[in-house]
Design a protein around this nucleic acid. Structure first.
Lengths: 109, 109
DNA sequence: TTGACATTTCCATGTTTGTAGAAATAATAT
DNA sequence: ATATTATTTCTACAAACATGGAAATGTCAA
């Protein structure tokens, strides 16, 4: 089983949790500058230890990164990696089809 | 937390497992006609009960469906639902950005 | 150098998952 | 009826995960 697939699966597994998908959503909207952990906590209203656990998981698989500024930590999405992941899925979905390039503009009908 | 997000998270969680992502890959390539369970088993070389477990999970969240023809069961991707899922992610990623529509052609740089 | 703030690490606990052998079910052929 | 093929359900168990309280860490301000 390819490393690429293992990597994609690991990242998808992290996105596959309501709270973390919610975090993802917030991070996307925040753009490259990122959001403070505390801001995420306020938005989602969950205990700090629980949030921290989810953030560290997402960081571990390369979905986001953290950078400290004074006493607040900013989280920001690793957009490159997210795009790689989505590209993987789209390749599997559309370009992966034997006849896709020739006969169809979209495989998902 | 919205139902749409819960649904997306549930489907992503299923894709977030190497074996199941491998199944997904096979199903995509098989197109609408689908693949026999036995064929998937041969391709992945895992015990029938383990495979069956993964297939039922994927079915449960609406990623695929099964249809019997004689004594073989064919599995096929629910392409509509997969596209909905990918659209959700893409919306979150690109259209979700406040300034996306105005200033950028892609958010994932 | 004490106090407040922001966040993580540690710890404990209950829940879900992944795995696979063995038995059961379904469909077909002889 | 019986055997064969195809697949699921049952069962059990270890490993991983999710949750959150409490204590620890890092940073700044007075």
């Amino acid at each position: 089983m390819s490393l690429e697939l293992e990597q994609a699966a690991a990242q998808l597994a992290e996105l596959g949790h309501p709270t973390r998908l919610g975090i993802f959503r917030i991070l996307v909207r925040a753009g490259h500058q990122g959001v403070a952990v505390g801001e995420i906590q306020q938005a989602l209203d969950i205990p700090n230890s629980t949030l921290s656990h989810h953030l560290s998981r997402m960081t571990k698989v390369g979905l986001m990164a953290q950078r400290r500024d004074g006493r607040t930590l900013y989280c920001s999405l690793l957009f490159n990696n997210v795009e790689t992941l989505l590209a993987f899925l789209y390749d599997e979905c559309c370009l992966g089809l034997p006849s896709a390039s020739a006969s169809q503009s979209s495989c998902c009908d």
